[in-house]
């Protein structure tokens, strides 16, 4: 156990085989949907709380770690929205950007009041967030749930909260590749933005890329894709090996990152104007309705 800015604890093979939710009879595709929605919820909350992206990313990684493996949390026991809130609370607490339980609860209440799972980012800013305070009683109950879930996260992760995110790393790598000095300024920022966008994409991947690959590999793959997209020429050699990524890993990550787009489109189509079930109760209803639909077929 030597936490470093270049290394994250990764899942074991056994943990990737199954999850607590699947053992409880929740279909894998539903779990993917809920995890995706939960990660997006964490991202939206973090954005509204004006947290730096590094902190939000750490919260999402912790959220994802929670569900992994047979000993991980199950959607039959924990609401994904609760786990999202508690991982964000836990991460901010350890960061330099502490947020009070009240602000977190308020923002989740606000986001929960939105009609559907997929809302445009601009729409989030337009609505009046200060209209969605919860009552004092509700606040007390939710705060207790928040703290209970916080402890469950700590227990299930065995206090392994170390998350190294590759945001600064990818900038260092771009500097190492000597790209910034060769390009005009607008192109530089375009390239850096795309790279960071790919790192954000990796957070939402159903393949749990942050749980299976180390930060240097993620940064390298993000740079590779961004450079392709922005049409910036990278060295004509196996430059990724300088960043300790072999061709195999790079290829896997490139495919993984590119597939998120179609996954997201599919999710958007699937849930369209509906809400993704998040709470234990909603999941139960969803699973039950699926079962009855199967029986009718």
């Amino acid at each position: 156990m030597h936490p470093s800015p270049l290394a994250n604890p990764l899942t074991t093979v056994a943990q990737l085989e199954t999850t607590g939710s699947q053992l409880d009879g929740i279909p894998a595709d539903l779990e993917d949907s809920v995890r995706f929605a939960g990660a997006r919820l964490t991202q939206a909350t973090g954005t509204l709380l004006r947290l730096p992206q590094e902190v939000i990313a750490q919260a999402i990684v912790i959220f994802m770690r929670f569900w992994v493996g047979p000993e991980g949390g199950s959607l039959a026991d924990f609401g994904a929205d609760q786990v999202s809130a508690a991982s964000l609370y836990l991460t901010t607490k350890l960061s330099a950007y502490t947020k009070s339980p009240r602000s977190i609860i308020n923002v989740y209440a606000y986001l929960n009041s939105l009609p559907a799972a997929f809302v445009d980012a601009e729409q989030l800013q337009q609505q009046k967030a200060d209209k969605h305070y919860v009552s004092e009683g509700t606040y007390q109950t939710r705060k207790t749930t928040l703290f209970d879930t916080e402890q469950s996260i700590l227990r299930i992760l065995g206090f392994q909260l170390h998350v190294a995110v590759p945001y600064t790393l990818c900038i260092t790598y771009l500097q190492t590749l000597d790209i910034f000095t060769q390009l005009p300024r607008p192109r530089v920022s375009e390239l850096a933005k795309r790279t960071i966008a790919y790192l954000n994409t990796a957070l939402l991947s159903p393949q749990l890329l942050y749980l299976t690959h180390q930060p240097p590999n993620l940064a390298t793959a993000a740079i590779y894709l961004a450079a392709k997209e922005v049409a910036v020429k990278l060295p004509d050699v196996e430059w990724w090996e300088v960043f300790d990524t072999d061709r195999e890993e790079l290829g896997f990550l490139v495919v993984g990152l590119l597939s998120v787009e179609s996954f997201a489109a599919q999710e958007k189509k699937r849930w369209a104007d509906k809400k993704v079930p998040m709470t234990v109760g909603e999941i139960e209803t969803e699973v039950a309705s699926r079962r009855s639909a199967e029986r009718e077929d």
Binding site: M1, H2, P3, S4, L6, A7, N8, P9, L10, T11, T12, Q15, R65, G69, E71, L154, R155, I156, L157, G158, F159, Q160, H162, A164, Q214, P215, P216, E238, E241, D244, T245, D246, R247
Partner: peptide, 18 residues
């Protein structure tokens, strides 16, 4: 040559319940 090049492998363990 690529198989000769030594790539660093980073490891920070895994996690399990307390």
């Amino acid at each position: 040559t690529s198989s000769e090049r030594k790539l660093l492998r980073f490891s920070a363990g895994s996690w399990g319940p307390s």
